[in-house]
């Protein structure tokens, strides 16, 4: 029996001794086997340079400087290619769709990948809520919601009560349409970025800037409505002595814009960062050319980050909506600034 065990142990040892080096060096073996690959890649880089993507000069420079670094450079390019907007929707193994370039009056109104994602989101949202809305139209007050209506109701009710009502207070109904739309729009944009072939439209600063601009206008409208033009202008002076106005007015004026800019950067950076982290983790295994790294590090860690991203998708949609509601609430608060803020603080 002892001998059998020893043989077994020997066999396991031999197999691992055979497999581990292969796993470590499989890629390099392949690379070593066909040296044409080394030449193909600079060629690919030059093709990219022709296309005008990324920074061809920097890329070629980096490659000539140290030949091994070209993998790293390529990873950066691929990551940026995934994050950035472009005119192509790629369905990797099946081919890609070229999107039309539209230029009207000197403005580039091309339909880009992110525009397509926005439209996909819109289509899904409208389809989803057409079903849910139809159910509610048919439902009497005595009936309990079921299925999709019930699932969406939880979110709608959350935005309505815990976000809009809690932060805006009286008259929150007017802003409810915007807050609900922005929440579901951002949420779905975030989630579609996590789907294969999808792209994160909210990871583009132009999209988040536009959404934040809507919040900005709504905030200003709420402030104007609550305080009137006189009160609005008086607020710009910060309630200080006229001698200080020359300092206060620019500060308050800049302060108006910090809120939407913060909203813009927060959403954009969060969505972009998550994707860059996932792609970087995956590319580590390509850069190191090792299956071990892929199995031990890249895949589990990127799965972890992916799950985190799922959470962040909800979190960021919530935060954007929440802060929009908070800004509107603060702008329309009647003198009771501190009271309102205290109320909002106790809620969270």
């Amino acid at each position: 029996m002892k001998r059998v065990k020893a043989i077994k142990a020997m066999a396991i040892f031999r197999v691992t001794a055979l497999i581990v080096p292969i796993l470590f060096s499989f890629n390099s073996l392949v690379f070593a086997a066909n040296p044409e690959m080394q030449e193909v890649q600079p060629a690919a880089a030059s093709v990219e340079a022709v296309h005008g993507e990324a920074h061809p000069v920097a890329a070629t420079e980096a490659e000539t400087a140290h030949g091994d670094a070209h993998g790293e450079e390529k990873a950066g390019d691929v990551i940026m290619h995934h994050i950035l907007d472009n005119n192509v929707i790629a369905f990797e193994p099946f081919g890609e769709i070229e999107l039309p370039k539209i230029v009207i009056g000197g403005f580039d109104l091309s339909i880009t990948k992110h525009v397509v994602m926005l439209w996909t989101v819109s289509a899904i949202l409208i389809a989803l809520f057409a079903v849910a809305g139809g159910k509610y139209r048919k439902m009497t007050a005595r009936e309990a919601p079921k299925g999709i209506a019930n699932a969406l109701e939880a979110l709608v009710q959350f935005i309505r009560l815990d976000v809009a009502k809690a932060n805006i207070g009286k008259g929150y109904e007017k802003y409810l349409d915007y807050l609900l739309t922005v929440f579901f729009f951002i949420l779905l944009c975030n989630l579609l970025g996590l789907v294969p072939y999808g792209a994160t439209a909210t990871g583009n600063i132009n999209v988040t800037l536009t959404l934040a601009t809507f919040t900005f206008f709504l905030t200003q409208a709420a402030a104007l409505k609550a305080h009137g033009i006189k009160g609005y202008l008086a607020h710009l002076t910060g309630g200080t002595h006229p001698a200080l106005w020359i300092i206060m007015i620019p500060i308050e004026f800049i302060g108006l814009f910090t809120k939407p800019v913060a909203l813009t950067i927060r959403l954009f950076a969060n969505m972009t960062a998550g994707h860059i982290v996932i792609l970087s983790l995956i590319f580590i295994s390509f850069i190191l050319k090792s299956y071990i790294v892929a199995v031990v590090m890249s895949v589990p860690f990127s799965i972890f980050i992916y799950l985190l991203e799922l959470f962040v998708a909800f979190l960021q949609a919530f935060i954007f909506t929440m802060l929009s509601a908070l800004f509107i609430g603060l702008a329309s608060a009647h003198e009771g600034h501190d009271e309102h803020e205290a109320g909002a603080a106790t809620h969270h």
């Binding site: 403005f107 580039d108 109104l109 339909i111 992110h114 926005l118 583009n204 959404l211 601009t213």
Partner: peptide, 9 residues
């Protein structure tokens, strides 16, 4: 990207 801003809006 003004085009994207326009389309988003």
């Amino acid at each position: 990207n003004p085009g994207l801003i326009f389309w988003t809006a």
